[in-house]
Design a protein around this nucleic acid. Structure first.
Lengths: 242, 242
DNA sequence: CGAGCCGTTGAGGGGATTCAAGCTCAGTGG
DNA sequence: CCACTGAGCTTGAATCCCCTCAACGGCTCG
């Protein structure tokens, strides 16, 4: 845990040292708080690193903390009634995850790191206490919840319908929002694509290969790709208008 | 608008007269408020009836009110990038809809009445004012948002995957939660089933007919059905274990 | 080097779509 | 009263997309 914590700089606490330089601050949950309050809470916030495929929390666990994603991509999985696992949503930089524990509920899904992930761990009691005095924080929480709901509905409308090729194109478009500084995009394993888009690994593989041949996609390391945004857009439009 | 208003009885305001007998009160948003506060707000709450297929609000509208569903079923529709419409979620008795306007956002989806719907219309400013003084209300709002998010994720995991027959069975199961007092279940038009489950009207029709022949489903009026819960359960299990 | 995982590609079958034709039923007007 | 109409539902036949089953290649690791 020798990485940079989040939220705010300050002389009061060593962990607050590098927060001013944190790029997520402002877009993150505690961006709504005033500076005095921020100084008080640094001591309680840990930053956590989770390796790719590592569990962040598990469905049903009581849980005592929420997290802000500082970097990387997190997926939410649910066991379906059929027994297999389906990925129902992704979260990335700046997103709040695990907020259901603030309502004294267990985590609703399994949260798993897709890439290596940097998180800020915020204890539940901290938000509870602040929430009693500061309704701005509650409003900020609601905004984040609404954002998650939007994401989930957009997932239904865009990633869970139409032919397999369309769904893969939409997924690539979504993943391109999470591209890193160099423009490299995380590319899920074929099995993960299957769990996101409800298709077999073979179909996922065929479509990714096909898109590579069409120049929409190029290899960029083991689990990353380089996207031609223009070609992607053209492919999506061609797909959608018939 | 001669139907029963919601939330609370009281001598102070005529519209408060029948609220104590309202069955949704307690499970509805303002159930969290104390009695004194409830008395103050009755004057601002209207109850609204919307006929089947009537619009409640439209995606993108600024909007000045949230609604609590007192009876009936509401669907949320989104225009997809392909140009057609997909139903992304359902809301029923006790659910809060349109809560995005509380965050000064336009409505995220079209909300359309599936059946005839009874709503309580709650002006935005009312929640804003109360929210400043009473953080319990904000917590209650968050609970409702979380519930909506759960629904949306469950939709992805249960209604948007697997073969068509499985999806139809899951939909019937979900609809049975909204059965009316007599045990009659609202049955969507085939086109609506298509928009919910991403299938053609022909496929929806074939499957509904097949389930009728199997005795899972029986006609009960024009747009309603009677379900054999046991047969439905058996069909779902048979479906899932192969 | 063999084992195992992941990705790729092929062949065949099955389920959903497409295209097409009737059917039921409520509403309309002669 | 009843033919006429149109919207929604049902059913059939042909096509196609995706799944299933199978084999193989590249890569990492013990």
């Amino acid at each position: 845990m020798n990485t940079i914590p989040i939220y705010r700089d300050g002389v009061a606490h060593p962990q607050a040292q590098v927060c001013a330089s944190c790029e997520v601050r402002g877009s993150a949950l505690f961006g709504a708080l005033d500076d005095a309050t921020l100084d008080r809470i640094h001591a309680h916030i840990d930053d956590v690193a989770v390796p790719a495929d590592g569990a962040i929390f598990g469905q049903g666990e009581p849980g005592a903390a929420v997290f802000t994603v500082r970097s990387g991509i997190v997926r939410f999985e649910r066991a379906t009634s059929r027994g297999d696992r389906r990925i129902v949503r992704l979260a990335g930089r700046g997103d709040l995850i695990g907020q259901e524990v603030l309502m004294k509920r267990p985590y609703a899904d399994d949260a798993v790191a897709c890439t290596e992930v940097q998180l800020c761990r915020i204890p539940r009691h901290l938000v509870d206490e602040l929430g009693n005095s500061d309704s701005m924080l509650l409003r900020e929480l609601m905004l984040r919840l609404q954002h998650a709901l939007d994401d989930a509905e957009a997932w239904v409308a865009e990633l869970a319908m139409g032919p397999a090729r369309r769904r893969v194109l939409r997924l690539l478009d979504k993943l391109s929002e999470h591209a890193d500084a160099s423009g490299s995009v995380w590319l899920p394993r074929r099995e993960e694509i299957g769990a996101m888009l409800d298709m077999t690994v073979e179909t996922a593989s065929r479509l990714i290969s096909q898109l590579r041949r069409e120049g929409v996609l190029a290899r960029d390391g083991q689990r990353a790709a380089r996207l031609d945004r223009a070609a992607l857009r053209r492919a999506m439009e061609a797909q959608d208008l018939q």
